[in-house]
Amino acid sequence: MSMQIEIDLASGVPPYEQIRSQVVAHASAGRLRAGDRLPTIRALAVDLGVAAGTVARAYRELETSGVVVTRRRTGTVVADGAPATDVGLGRAAAEFVAAARARGLTDEAVVDLVRGTLLTPLGDGRSG
């Protein structure tokens, strides 16, 4: 399965933010590893049918947060200190998403569920 970026132009979230968050998500899930090369700004902009400035802004934000670095010869690559989740937690997240999808939840509903759970105070989540 290849990595993809999917953006929704009708969404309230700006396209650059959708690109940025999905690159971070791929890095967190371990699909993007340190040293992996991202597409050039122009190539990704052409593929998505958005302005090059949109992708450039996403890459700039990623660079500022230390997820990627841009080098003259190799272009934009995933940085050494990119966020990488613990392997066990990553597996647990994958199992949770698979279970939620199997029960018919949409991706938005899954995210809402996680957000709701994160809002729960720490002490309440440890019972049982």
């Binding site: 290849s2 990595m3 993809q4 970026i5 999917e6 953006i7 929704d8 132009l9 009708a10 999905q22 690159v23 791929h26 993007l32 090369r37 991202l38 597409p39 050039t40 190539a43 990704l44 593929d47 998505l48 049918g49 958005v50 272009g75």
Partner: peptide, 14 residues
């Protein structure tokens, strides 16, 4: 050219 509101692209360099 890509059309529609949902756009997808591979995150790999070609």
């Amino acid at each position: 050219r890509p059309s529609g509101t949902i756009r997808r692209a591979p995150l790999t360099r070609r």
